[in-house]
Design a protein around this nucleic acid. Structure first.
Length: 805
DNA sequence: GCTTAGGTTTTG
């Protein structure tokens, strides 16, 4: 009887055997005897089942004292529990995050992760005769007070354990549905609508799913309880559906729920959390299910079914498009009977100014004024018609995903009072139109979803930055704001740059500058006469801070060839001991290339920490496939077989894919070896952590340009390198990954140096230049100049000024 | 208790 599920919460004292006494988590110590004690807590983390050897599993979880004082430290209230053998499998299938459990028969060990997770210094080890009792919130009436507490737990307890006989479900492939039959199916979601109120008594939700048969099947779910509907967050999610009836509609077969139906949903990313999204209190979920989910995930990833951009941050929203937004609700206000205003943010800044909607302060729920920095990040979303009801129920601070939100530029009229920021301003309004077409709707995201965790990180980062602003001291402020506009021709001249250095020096002319001693900083007022490279993507370089060399970014064609070379070779290969490996075959394509197998290797250590999605090693994939998979994983390291073992690709190829970003290593300075990447003591597994673990000397993306400056007295060639990112207000890494960041640089440069014959003049630039001496190719000492501490402020709105005299 | 919707963009 290793794991016992009590379907009714009977009070802490009745959970677990009565002859044992409960010990608070804070009092647990090493070397004490706990055979007559129990520990009680809420499961706040449940790790995946990790296979030690065939049939033998380990599972880690964290429980937290649920009735501890709110100010108690996590060290006193939360403890790791480690379950071994059948207990692990039973726990995995019977216990959910959020459940309250009581454990007995445990032993106490030293927690190896204490420094990292700041939880209790000990952990609880459960194996053999240990026992876990689980309680769940009570189901709706019958009236629970009608039975004495002790009797209740006996009457209503059910046992979910390896000894319990459970119904074995069989699942039908989607191309094998027979009209009239009631079936169980698995599928990958390719389209979905959130539950919406039907004209009847129920809520209705729609899904379209597919599976390895490639058949696409529409499904309809009717149920009066929204919570029983599938919890789909994005395309690519996986669903398991029980008791659905196949029927004909419009010459095609589809599925509708029947009596006793149930639906479970899972994250669709390979290696993602195995935690089912379900409202069922008890459910069957075993290793076959786990395998079914993993198989579908791999298949879907390889089919490209996972969306490239599941949701769009406000910083990337394009006008006139429909997009999905993951955001936090800050305030709301009813506008009229068909429209409600939701004020939301995601911590990123939309480059367009956003529509300001003014509603009367006394109808607004939430803060009426926010810091102006925060205010600039807030998007006003107008939701209409059927969505108003849902919006009304939303609580402030909730994390939402809004599907099929429309970004409307410029002159759209909105109900209520629009501020003086009127139609000629290029602003964006966000509308959630009425209806459910294209899955339009709003979904509440649970706190533990990875997307919410990510959103919180971004928001926290913004709030930290905001706290820093007042630290700018007065003299710095004066220098930034009071640099007197020096005008060569006596008129006030608009300037497109802003210096942020603390030098208190007068500007000099270029001819004066050329006569002065090197090794000093200067301020100049100049125009941009020309620049190199003309093809701006060539300005992007890879720089090694160790050997101080710079190289070009390898082009896609070369990288693709390295990948296809690596994927063609398929000799025998033993994965390292720390890896858990899986494979998926890529069917022959229309060009008749032979079947290939993709191999995925995951670190068992990371898996046991619930971080399997954070890093995978991928073998046999093409560049394109790798890029596609990079959407589902935080980190992908491409590998190839070499001498019977796994090795990194040639370092001309990126050694790491993080979303759209690629990272390269220095061939000269790296001593690459495929070793396990440990997340010990690190917050985020990022490129630095991985590079270090793999012995790769990380190359840094940098921008390098040569600019020819001019003023009335002379011209001067200067470099833009060290402070290039500051100058353009972009990161080189973003430029490498993001077309928009590239075009922003192009526009900036073009506005500073308009093409011959164009009407725009050259704006004046206030620059801070540093001079230094360096050897040129021939070994000659030369004086060099670099632009420092300077940022372009208004490239597009600069008025043309007359040519210098 | 046996209906609801049946993807496919508001018209603010």
């Amino acid at each position: 009887m290793p794991v016992v599920v009590l379907t009714k919460r009977a009070g802490p004292s009745t959970l677990g055997p009565a002859h044992l006494s409960r010990i608070p988590i804070s009092l647990i110590k090493m070397n004490n005897e706990y055979s007559n004690k129990t520990v009680e807590g809420r499961v706040i983390h449940k790790g995946p089942l990790v296979s030690l050897q065939p049939g033998n599993y380990i599972l880690k979880a964290v429980i937290q004292e649920h009735d501890s004082p709110p100010n108690a430290s996590s060290e006193d209230t939360s403890i790791n529990i480690v379950l071994l053998g059948p207990l692990a499998t039973d726990f995995s299938s019977a216990v959910n995050q959020g459940d309250v459990v009581v454990a007995s028969g445990f032993t106490v060990g030293k927690s190896p992760t204490f420094r990292k997770d700041k939880l209790h210094r000990c952990n609880l080890l459960l194996s053999g005769d240990a026992c876990v009792y689980v309680s769940r919130p009570p189901p709706p009436p019958p009236d629970p007070t009608s039975l004495p507490a002790m009797k209740r737990s006996t009457v209503l307890s059910t046992e979910v354990s390896r000894s319990t006989k459970t119904t074995k479900y069989t699942y039908v492939r989607l191309n094998d549905l027979k009209v009239g039959s009631v079936v169980n199916v698995y599928g990958v979601v390719v389209f979905f609508k959130q539950p919406f109120r039907s004209r009847g008594t129920d809520f209705c939700s729609s899904l379209k799913i597919t599976d390895q048969s490639n058949q696409k099947i529409s499904c309809t779910i009717f149920c009066d309880k929204v919570d029983s509907h599938p919890k789909i967050f994005q395309i690519g999610d996986i669903v398991r559906m029980h008791r659905f009836k196949a029927q004909f509609f419009k010459d095609t077969i589809m599925l509708v729920n029947t009596f006793g139906f149930s639906v479970m949903a899972f994250d669709g990313a390979v290696g993602g959390a195995m935690e089912p999204r379900t409202s069922s209190r008890t459910y069957h979920f075993d290793q076959d299910d786990q395998r079914a989910v993993e198989e579908l995930r791999l298949w879907a990833a390889n089919q490209g079914l996972l969306p490239l951009v599941p949701t769009t941050p406000l910083s990337a929203v394009q006008p006139k498009t429909y997009f999905n937004l993951t955001c936090q609700l800050l305030a709301k206000a009813p506008v009229d009977s068909t429209c409600t205003l939701l004020r939301v943010w995601d911590g990123t800044r939309c480059p367009r100014s956003l529509l300001k909607v003014i509603v009367e302060p006394n109808v607004t729920e939430g803060p009426s004024s926010l810091s102006s920095a925060k205010e600039n990040l807030i998007a006003n979303v107008l939701v209409y018609d059927n969505h108003v009801e849902f919006a009304r129920q939303l609580k402030l601070g909730a994390f939402l995903r809004i599907y099929n939100l429309r970004a409307i530029p410029g002159s759209s009229k909105v109900p209520g009072l629009t501020s003086s920021q009127s139609e000629e301003v290029d602003h964006l309004a966000f509308h959630l139109h009425g209806g459910t077409a294209y899955g339009r709707g709003i979904r509440l995201l649970p706190e533990n979803s990875p997307d919410v965790q990510e959103l919180k990180r971004v928001i926290e980062a913004f709030e930290e930055d905001e706290d820093k602003v007042p630290e700018l001291n007065d003299s710095e402020m004066l220098d930034v704001w009071c640099t007197p506009p020096e005008s060569l021709d006596g008129d006030t001249v608009t300037c497109s740059t802003e210096r942020s250095c603390s030098h208190n020096i007068q500007p000099v002319t270029l001819s004066e500058l050329k006569r002065s001693e090197p090794g000093r900083d200067h301020h100049v007022r100049v125009q941009l006469r020309s620049y190199e490279p003309l093809r701006l993507h060539q300005a992007l370089k890879l720089y090694c801070s160790k050997c101080e060399t710079m190289q070009d970014v390898p082009d896609d064609e070369l990288v693709a060839e390295l990948f296809s070379e690596a994927s063609r070779y398929s000799g025998p290969c033993t994965p390292p001991q720390w890896a858990l490996s899986g494979q998926v075959s890529v069917p022959r394509d229309s060009l008749g290339t032979p079947d290939r197998t993709l191999h995925v290797h995951l670190s068992t250590q990371l898996m046991s920490e619930g971080k399997s999605k954070e890093l995978i090693f991928l073998m046999g994939a093409t560049l394109e496939e790798t890029c596609r998979l990079a959407d589902g994983y935080q980190n992908i390291v491409p590998v190839r077989p070499s001498g019977g073992h796994l090795a990194l690709l040639d370092l001309s190829a990126p050694f790491l894919f993080r979303g759209r970003k690629r990272y390269y290593g220095c061939k000269q300075c790296s001593e690459a070896a495929l070793t396990e990447v440990s997340a010990e003591g690190v917050q985020v597994i990022d490129e630095k952590v991985i590079a270090e673990a793999l012995g790769v000397q990380l190359l840094q993306f940098v921008l390098l340009m040569k600019l020819k400056l001019q003023d009335a007295t002379d011209t001067l060639d200067v470099f833009l390198w060290r402070d290039a990112e500051l100058f353009f207000n972009v990161s080189a890494e973003d430029v490498a990954a993001d077309q928009e960041a590239q075009s922003s640089i192009c526009h900036t440069v073009e506005s500073l140096c308009p093409a011959e014959g164009s009407t725009g003049g050259r704006p004046w630039l206030d620059l801070c230049l540093t001079t230094y001496q360096a050897e040129d190719d021939q070994g000659q000492i030369q004086t060099c100049y670099q632009i420092c501490h300077t940022t372009i402020t208004t490239p597009s709105s600069t008025r043309p000024d007359p040519e210098p005299a």
